[in-house]
């Protein structure tokens, strides 16, 4: 598959007067934004009927750069705001940009319940394992023993796995990639956008300024390489399991892809019956 040039993305989808982005050198959030916009371009989605919703944090600044309706809400509440937008106007395509802290800690409950409710929104969670905006504090996804400014002696809390949570609660589409998987990312975001119901794409992204620096992981190039080495594709992983082997690498790939009736469809059905 051929890729289009960035000038189309910039011209058609970005608010040029807002660029350059506020993200640090080597931060992966810009890449994920690019992947999402390319997925939207490929699907020919009407930006006049698309709303980007976000909470607070680095990743939540994304909608500010995208030329569409944007709702930069409160910390952790993006999915709850998005639920309101989607239910009130089901014609709109609602895409949530969130981070690991926004989605997994302060907004964890909204995340679970939007999946349970199966609201037809796409949530793109950019997981950089740390709170970047506030300068590098421990996040719910921070790996054990990792250093952050609030775990100066190493993290003693077990991290959560957002994608596995989404899978267990029953999201009809779940995928996880890293920023070093642009092609797969775009393809998964496309599938997520086409899925009716709650779709979740988690993208592991480097935060060289906080996570990389505090854990001596080098620059974004080193971190990107590290992501490739410390993850394993679900297909390989399943083969390993079948062979009785195991690994502590993080599983990436398309984790769930099923059909499940969403909230709006169900709601409209019984509304129709009432009339």
């Amino acid at each position: 598959m051929g890729f289009i040039s960035n000038d189309i993305i910039i011209e058609k989808y970005l608010r040029k007067d807002m660029l350059p982005t506020i993200f640090c050198t080597g931060c992966g959030i810009g890449s994920v934004m690019n992947y999402a916009l390319r997925a939207i371009h490929d699907l020919n989605i009407d930006m006049n009927e698309t709303v980007f919703v976000s909470g607070i944090g680095c990743s939540s600044r994304v909608p500010g750069y995208i030329y569409s309706d944007g709702l930069h809400s409160l910390h952790g509440r993006a999915i709850a705001y998005a639920t309101g937008v989607k239910l009130a106007n089901p014609k709109l395509k609602v895409i949530v940009f969130t981070g690991d802290g926004d989605c997994g800690a302060i907004g964890g409950n909204h995340f679970l319940h939007a999946i349970r409710r199966n609201v037809d929104i796409t949530v793109i969670s950019i997981n950089n394992f740390i709170y970047g905006m506030t300068g590098g504090q421990v996040a719910p996804t921070t790996p054990l023993n990792s250093k952050t400014t609030t775990t100066p002696y190493g993290n003693i809390e077990y991290p959560i796995d957002l994608s596995m949570m989404a899978k267990v609660i029953g999201a009809p589409y779940v995928a996880r990639w890293t920023t070093a998987h642009p092609v797969q990312c775009i393809s998964s975001i496309k599938k997520a956008l086409q899925k009716t119901g709650f779709s979740f794409v988690e993208v592991l992204a480097p935060c060289p300024t906080s996570y990389g620096r505090l854990n001596k992981m080098g620059n974004t190039l080193d971190m990107t390489k590290h992501f490739k080495e410390s993850t394993i594709n679900i297909k390989l992983y399943e083969k390993m399991l079948a062979d009785g082997k195991t690994t502590d690498k993080m599983v990436i790939g398309e984790l769930v892809d099923i059909e499940k009736e969403d909230f709006n469809t169900k709601y409209n059905k019984f509304c129709g019956e009432l009339k």
């Binding site: 709702l71 509440r77 705001y81 639920t83 937008v85 239910l87 709109l92 409950n109 679970l112």
Partner: peptide, 23 residues
């Protein structure tokens, strides 16, 4: 639309989101 949210924070958040669409 009626929806019972997971808590009061989510309720007012959804209300604001819905109001953004003009409802």
């Amino acid at each position: 639309v009626y929806v019972q949210m997971e808590d009061e924070i989510a309720s007012i958040a959804a209300v604001i989101g819905a109001s953004c669409t003009g409802v």
